[in-house]
Amino acid sequence: MRAAVSDRRGVAAVEFGIMIPLLSLMVVSVTDIGLAIYRKMQVENAAQAGAQYAIARGFDASGISNAVTSATNSTAITASPGPVQFCGCPTNAGVSAVSCGAVCTGGAQAGTYATVSAQATYYTLINYQIVAATYSYSAQSTARLQ
């Protein structure tokens, strides 16, 4: 009996067997977080690509929507809500919508702007039970056209 108690062979294998599920969960969780952040960056880049398209080629709702969906290799990204063209004046808080032809503060003519939106949903790799299984990301980019 004394020999069995002092025998240390196989201890490393038992410890490895106990630790491998925890290490595997950590690897999957870190990968899941990375993929979620990557999806968020894809959505932001898609909205910016749509705004860049509008700057370069003018306002074309279908062309902008195609630029948004084609900006990444993800099929989950949509241009929703659709792109919007409006007239506005720049302010400290952003762009305030005004009627076209209006004169802004400072005497400048109101400019033409386009707002492009993109959105996608990320589904986690496994159900963690303590956090949500889906995350919805959306981004919006506004650019002056004229």
Rank of each mutant, 00 (worst) to 15 (best):
D7V: 03
Q140F: 06
A36Y: 00
E44C: 03
A12W: 04
L25T: 09
G88K: 13
V116H: 07
A46S: 14
L22M: 15
R57C: 00
T75C: 00
A54E: 01
F59E: 00
G106W: 09
I20A: 15
G111Q: 12
L23C: 12
L145V: 09
T115S: 11
S62R: 06
G101F: 08
S141D: 07
G17E: 00
Y137S: 01
T121A: 12
Y128A: 14
L23K: 05
I37V: 14
Q140Y: 11
I20S: 12
S6H: 14
S62C: 02
V95A: 04
V68M: 08
Q42R: 10
A114P: 00
V103S: 15
R144M: 13
V14I: 14
G94M: 15
I130P: 03
Q146T: 14
Y53D: 00
G107V: 10
L23E: 04
A61C: 07
A102F: 06
N45G: 03
A133N: 08
G94I: 12
I130S: 12
A49H: 02
A36W: 06
T142P: 10
G50V: 09
I126F: 13
T112D: 11
V116K: 06
G111R: 11
I37K: 02
A102Q: 07
V84P: 02
S99P: 05
T72A: 01
R9A: 12
S74W: 01
Y53T: 04
V43H: 05
V131W: 10
T105H: 10
F86I: 10
T72N: 02
A97T: 15
L35H: 08
S24R: 09
V11P: 14
G10M: 09
V14W: 05
S141P: 03
T78I: 07
N127M: 00
G63D: 08
E44A: 07
I64R: 03
V98S: 04
T69W: 02
F86E: 04
S138A: 15
T91P: 05
I126Q: 09
S99E: 11
M1E: 13
I33H: 03
V95Y: 12
A61L: 05
T142Y: 13
Y128R: 11
M41E: 04
Y128M: 15
S141H: 01
N127V: 02
L145G: 02
V5I: 14
A36Q: 04
G10W: 09
A56W: 08
G10F: 13
A47L: 09
A132V: 04
A139V: 02
A139D: 03
A46P: 01
G101P: 11
A4T: 01
S138T: 11
F86Y: 15
S141I: 06
T78P: 01
Q129T: 11
T31H: 02
Y137K: 06
I126M: 15
A4C: 05
A132Q: 07
F16R: 00
A114C: 05
A46H: 06
T31S: 10
T115R: 15
G82Q: 09
A4R: 14
N45K: 04
D32Q: 09
Q109V: 14
T124C: 07
Q129C: 00
V98G: 03
D7E: 09
T142W: 10
M19T: 15
A67F: 05
M1Q: 02
G50F: 12
Y135V: 10
A54R: 07
G50C: 02
I77L: 06
I77R: 07
V98T: 08
A47N: 02
